[in-house]
């Protein structure tokens, strides 16, 4: 399952990754904090939308991600 950056507001087009709570290969439970994101206005914790094993991280810490883009994959 792809974990995508959800909409954060009309004028917010992207967020930057502050840090990942999980490493590739680790398991994560549904609803567990997966990644912290930061925008100009606020910081967010994104919970895992499903449980499983984190297989891919598409954006490393400090990288920017567009709204709707894939952040990670959970299997």
């Amino acid at each position: 399952m792809e974990v995508k950056l959800p909409p954060l507001g009309n004028d917010i087009k992207e967020a930057s990754v502050s840090f990942w709570y999980k490493k590739v290969g680790e398991s994560v439970a549904e609803g567990e904090d997966l990644v912290e994101l930061s925008t100009e206005k606020a910081s967010f914790n994104l919970p895992a939308p499903a449980g499983g094993r984190l297989t891919v991280i598409k954006a490393g810490e400090g990288e920017k991600v567009a709204v709707g883009a894939t952040l990670a994959e959970i299997e």
């Binding site: 930061s38 606020a42 910081s43 967010f44 914790n45 994104l46």
Partner: peptide
């Protein structure tokens, strides 16, 4: 921004 200003997104 301090830690208490991290908001949890809801899926």
């Amino acid at each position: 921004r301090p830690a208490w200003l991290t908001k949890r997104l809801v899926f």
